[in-house]
Computed example of a mutant assay.
Amino acid sequence: MHRLSLVVLGLLLTAGAASAEEGRSNIWKRINAWTVGSDRSLGGSCYAATSYDAGAILRIGFYPRGSTNLAFLSIGNAEWKSIEPQREYDVALQLDRGRQWPAVAFGVDLTGARALVVNFSNTDFFTEFVRKNTLALAFEGRVVASLSLRDSMKAVSEMFKCQEAVSALIPNGGQGAANDPFAGAGGNAPNNDPFAGGGQTKSSKDPFAM
């Protein structure tokens, strides 16, 4: 995996739960529990986000055009306080009972929660993501989050439409600030904190990179 650039990481540090997105986003559409919008801190790039009763936060979105990676997936939880920003964590993602996607995630400090961010550089994960019902995140051999993907196909479809609109309205593809592009148009860790004591720097091979 290509390492998350410090510039983009700094932007992601301000990202919050779906309910906190609105102060820094232009909302494109709401689809049941999902919010789709354009993120001003990422140059207007679009995302889809949702939150869960157990406190988990799921966000998938694009990076600005010209970034090293195409898109990212972040999973966070208010209980995961021991995640260290910018630290690497070897994780695995699994959609339903399909193959696992091993990846190196990076810790970020969201508003009210810590999260892990996984980058990917092609659309393969998108294709699988919208077809499945659940997403599991495994760390050190055990599943630490199992999240429903209900309505994810509709949400990601709207995210692509949102990005097309942003790209049409912002000629440089989201580089630089965007106001409103739509105007006028660990094994010993406690059960509730699986990352306590974990996260040693390890190898960073990226199965998502082309």
Rank of each mutant, 00 (worst) to 15 (best):
F160V: 12
S146N: 15
A165T: 12
A165V: 06
E164Y: 02
M153F: 12
G141P: 07
R142C: 05
V166S: 01
V156Y: 13
N172E: 10
R142T: 00
E164P: 12
M153L: 09
G173Q: 04
L169V: 08
E164F: 02
A138I: 03
D151Q: 14
D151T: 04
L135E: 05
G173N: 10
K161V: 11
L137V: 08
S148D: 07
D151G: 05
V156G: 06
V143E: 15
K154P: 06
R142H: 10
E158Q: 14
K161A: 03
R150T: 06
G173K: 04
F160M: 07
L169P: 02
A168K: 14
L147Y: 13
P171R: 06
A145L: 03
V143M: 13
R142M: 07
E158I: 02
R150N: 09
A138H: 01
G141S: 09
V156R: 09
S148P: 01
C162R: 03
L137D: 10
A155V: 04
L135D: 11
A136C: 11
E164R: 02
S157H: 12
S157V: 11
A165I: 02
L147K: 14
R142K: 15
A155N: 10
R142S: 09
S146D: 15
K132R: 15
S167K: 08
A155C: 10
K132A: 14
N133E: 15
R150S: 13
P171V: 10
V156H: 11
R142G: 01
M159I: 03
K154S: 05
G173I: 00
D151V: 05
E158Y: 13
S148H: 04
A165P: 05
S167V: 03
D151N: 15
V166Y: 01
A165Q: 00
R150A: 14
K132V: 13
N133R: 15
G141V: 05
V166K: 01
P171D: 12
V166Q: 02
V143T: 15
N133M: 06
E158K: 13
G141I: 08
V166L: 01
A155H: 13
I170W: 02
L137N: 01
R142A: 11
N172R: 08
I170Y: 00
M153Q: 14
E140G: 04
A165G: 06
E158D: 14
F139D: 02
P171H: 00
L169I: 03
D151E: 12
L147V: 12
M159N: 10
N133H: 14
D151A: 12
K161W: 04
S146Q: 15
M153H: 13
S152K: 07
E164W: 07
G173V: 00
S157Y: 08
L147W: 13
L149E: 07
S167N: 09
S148N: 03
Q163C: 10
K132T: 15
S157T: 14
M153R: 15
Q163Y: 08
A165N: 06
L137W: 00
K132G: 00
T134R: 13
S152F: 05
V143Y: 07
M159P: 11
L147F: 14
L149F: 03
F139M: 03
V144P: 02
E158V: 00
V143N: 14
K161S: 07
N133W: 11
V156Q: 07
S146I: 05
C162Q: 04
A136W: 09
C162S: 11
T134V: 08
F139K: 01
P171F: 10
L169N: 12
V156S: 04
L149I: 08
M159R: 05
G173M: 05
V144R: 08
F160T: 06
L149D: 08
F139W: 11
